[in-house]
Every structure is written in C-alpha cells, then in structure tokens.
C-alpha cells in the first residue's frame, strides 16, 4: 500500500433539511482503485462531488496529504487540477475540438507551454484510442468516444487521483466496453481512482477496495472478495443479488 492521498472523515452533506450523506469515512492510498456501489440516490455521486468540491460538504473533513481542503487558504483550483474528474455526461467543451479540450486546462491552469501541452494531449488521446480524432468537435463523435476524450482530458493534467462519476451510465453496451477497457488499463498502470459505478463486474475485477452505500451512509466496505464473495450485511446481499441473479 502506498501513501495516503485522500482521507475523508465524518463527512456529511445536507441540501436544506435533506440529509444526503452521513458520517462518511474513506481513505484512499496511492494506487488504490476504490469502487463505490449502491442504488441511485444513495449519495454516491454527491460523495464524489464533495471530494472535488463541486459540492461543499456541510460537516466533516477531507484531507489531501493531511491538509484540509476546506481551509480558507487552500488553493482549490490547484487541488482540482491534481484530482481529475470524469462525468456521466462527459462535459466536453462543445466550443473546442477534441485536441483543444485536452490542451486548454494544461495551458490555462498548469501554465504549460502550448507545444508541450499539445504533445501531452496527443499522447493521452493516443492512449485512449482517440488520436485520429483530434480535429473533431464533440458533437461529431459518439458517446463512448466522448467519454474517452474526457478521460484523456483529465489524464493530460497528470492528476494524482481520478474520480469517475458513473462514467458508463449514459452509454450503450459496446461503448461501455470501450470506456471500461481504458479504465482497466489505467488501473493496471497504478492510477489512483475512485469510481462510482453500476458496473459490478468492473468493481469486482478491477478495484482494490469496494464501498457499498445505502441511504447516505457506508453500509459495508471491504475487498472485492469480501463484498462480492461473502457480504456480511443483508442490504449488501439484497443489492448484489439484483445484479447477479439476472
């Protein structure tokens, strides 16, 4: 196990009176692939969005290398550049070409020279198999291709952690395969990832740690073998049986 990168402790999130997350504790070490599973509305995505501060947690702490990311002086943009995010709806910049999508963040946020940024962008686009499409606009490519570009965009920032928010939920089965293939490769290369997913096979085969959430709390967590092989809680068994008894 590597160094601890992220430490979520006693995290809570309320939208008005609606409690979405309660007392969440997770720690992520370098090289971990943490899958967060659970039914829709269990707070998985909100948790991930809290980690990237797209939502502001209402209680608890998130430590990034032992620094509280909610501190006043904390440099949030720099942190976000280090903690990449891939969305369910891709969120590619529709006014830019595929290449430009992967270049803009490097130039504007990391202040890389354009030439270097273009080289890196091409390298990562090649890696996700989108090297040929650098001149395309997002509207001209398919969903699976968009998601692969979105992954390349996140990779081009050379982040320490990648967050995936249901990256395959908007895709058809073939495209799901394309995207999961890329994610498997990344996991194999030791990329630290937190993946919110409904792809149970991926969670079982690829992750090093599985978190099952229900009603805004962590119901059960453990290794894939524990969660998928011999879950302790009845809720976990019920949830998983719906996936594997089909």
């Amino acid at each position: 196990m590597g160094q601890t990168i992220l430490e979520v402790s006693h995290l809570g999130k309320k939208f008005g009176d609606n409690v979405v997350l309660r007392d969440i504790n997770i720690s992520v070490c370098s090289g971990d692939v943490t899958s967060i599973i659970g039914s829709s509305g269990s707070g998985k995505s909100t948790l991930l969005r809290c980690v990237n501060l797209l939502e502001t947690p209402t209680s608890g702490q998130i430590l990034y290398y032992e620094r509280d990311i909610m501190d006043k002086g904390f440099d949030v943009p720099a942190y976000r550049a280090k903690v990449g995010m891939v969305f369910q709806s891709f969120n590619l910049f529709s006014n830019m070409s595929v290449l430009e999508n992967c270049v803009v963040g490097q130039v504007k946020v990391l202040k890389r020279h354009r030439k270097e940024a273009v080289e890196k962008a091409r390298f990562y686009l090649e890696k996700v198999g989108m090297g040929a499409f650098i001149n395309a606009k997002p509207r001209q490519i398919s969903g699976g291709q968009k998601q692969r570009v979105a992954i390349a965009r996140a990779l081009a920032m050379e982040p320490e952690v990648l967050l995936f928010d249901e990256p395959t939920s908007a895709l058809d089965p073939q495209m799901v395969g394309e995207v999961l293939g890329v994610m498997r490769t990344l996991a194999g290369e030791g990329m630290t990832m937190i993946v919110v997913t409904h792809e149970m096979a991926f969670a079982r085969d690829v992750s090093s740690h599985v978190v099952f959430m229900k009603d805004g709390v962590i119901c059960e967590e453990g290794t894939p073998e524990q969660i998928f092989g011999s879950p302790e809680k009845q809720e976990t068994r019920d949830f998983l049986s719906r996936f594997f008894d089909r």
Binding site: L54, Y79, R80, S89, N91, K108, A154
Partner: peptide
C-alpha cells in the same frame, strides 16, 4: 456541465467564462 467540466480541471471563474462559457 460545461462549467463543472472546466472547474474540475482547475479553471477559475474568469478562465471558465472566457474559454468555455462566453464563446458558446
């Protein structure tokens, strides 16, 4: 989602506006 995509790679409000939102 465009704003979120921009924020998620670390752009600030001004960069998000000038590079992503205003052109669109």
């Amino acid at each position: 989602g465009q704003t979120e995509g921009a924020m998620a790679i670390g752009m600030n409000h001004f960069q998000t506006m000038t590079s992503v939102i205003l052109p669109q």
